[in-house]
Design a protein around this nucleic acid. Structure first.
Lengths: 222, 222
DNA sequence: CATGATTAAATTGTTGAACAAAGTATGATA
DNA sequence: TATCATACTTTGTTCAACAATTTAATCATG
């Protein structure tokens, strides 16, 4: 495997979806700054697609919450707010904790959780903190995958994208991601030891602490 | 007020969103049958919009789950399955029960709940069972609104649309909606009496029973 | 100088036509 | 009947155009 960061070069069913994925990465990766306006004409030329196709892309990403559409004014990269972060963590608690609590330790998603933990560990050594952040998010996406609920999984994917958008806004990624590598490992260990309820309690602590850290970093921006 | 069924003739920010709302109603209202194919050319002519705009509409509704898009083959009205109904009720339990349990009885959404109950009662007298179903769904949307979480509210709106799509597939709407008018009223009464926890327990029973009824009706179709 | 109204420029919203690519139906042939 | 080549239909995508709206620039006026 060449680069452990890139999850999968999915075949991009249609051009619009492919471009959407590319743009999504650019946004969550920080290449596009929150609040920035995305001119249809300019971006279409830059991406080498037509305006119509780009508009389809905009519709997709707007509904995902990482772009904002103001009628007759244009499309902007969404600007995370304190309120949105609070909302996101609330949703995370509501979904992740029960998902883990009712997990069957033999579920296939447990392997995904373990892979994510190991990837985070490897990227920590480079160090690539943004990569660590991605791996940590993947860990939590895997937790939701434990539910086998397509709707929850898709919804949570959105939530994660929004959260990564907020992360991109903050500096000091090491502080935001480093402490949670071992914490994820502990949660996973407890689950594999056959104690989902205990793992869920640890996860709840994790979320509370992570939320506080993010909010503090956010407050430091003014 | 002329017709208590129509919630609000929203100003339709853009043409695409307006048409999306119209199509959504046609689908959840049963005018478009699940599995039916939506030809771009024909439907665009019928709705008197261009193919490009219709495609934007398709993207919106596909992401909402009420249309399905097969690359190079076309767009179809989504076909509810037993699995999707199970998933939907699981999500409902996960979101609605905690939402109600932690509700503050003075919240503005309580008024929405009461309005929905009263509307259902009125429509029962006509009788308009499809309308009763809509009112019941509005009751539960109001429960989620108790959380003040934009993300949960938007997500739940989707879930409701999908469920109404499934309802449209089933016959005997009276059997599916009638029993729940009084049940909703009881839940509301318990909440207004200052016992959110008790109301939440009643809601849980409600969901279990409703799920069973829907699944049975679904099984009768073969 | 500031301010508000008027005009000009740029951008979005939407359409229609066009064509390549993929899928579907048709029909000839073995 | 089964199979394969062919014609037809539909989707995927682009392009050019124009109306509607917003933004910027201009300018008169207190």
């Amino acid at each position: 495997m060449a680069d452990p960061r890139e999850p999968a070069p999915s075949p991009a069913a249609s051009l619009a979806e492919g471009v959407a994925a590319r743009l999504r990465d650019q946004v969550t990766g920080g290449a596009l700054v929150p609040g920035q306006r995305l001119s249809e004409a300019r971006l279409a030329a830059e991406l080498d697609i037509s305006r119509n196709t780009l508009r389809e892309v905009f519709r997709l990403l707007t509904r995902e919450g990482i772009l904002r559409h103001e009628p007759n004014r244009g499309v902007f990269v969404a600007v995370p707010s304190m309120a949105s972060i609070l909302d996101i963590y609330r949703v995370r608690r509501l979904i992740e904790v029960p998902a883990l609590a009712q997990a069957w330790p033999g579920h296939a998603a447990v392997a995904r959780m373990r892979a994510a933990v190991e990837r985070a560990g490897a990227l920590q050594a480079i160090p690539d903190w943004r990569g660590v952040g991605s791996a940590n998010m993947e860990f939590h996406a895997a937790i939701v995958a434990l539910t086998d609920s397509p709707r929850l999984i898709q919804f949570f994917t959105q939530i994660i994208a929004e959260l990564r958008l907020a992360f991109g806004l903050l500096d000091s990624p090491e502080l935001l991601h480093r402490p949670y590598i071992s914490r994820n490992a502990e949660i996973l260990g407890r689950l594999e030891a056959g104690d989902p309820a205990g793992a869920a309690r640890m996860l709840e602590d994790y979320l509370t602490q992570s939320e506080r850290a993010v909010l503090e970093a956010f407050a430091r921006l003014g």
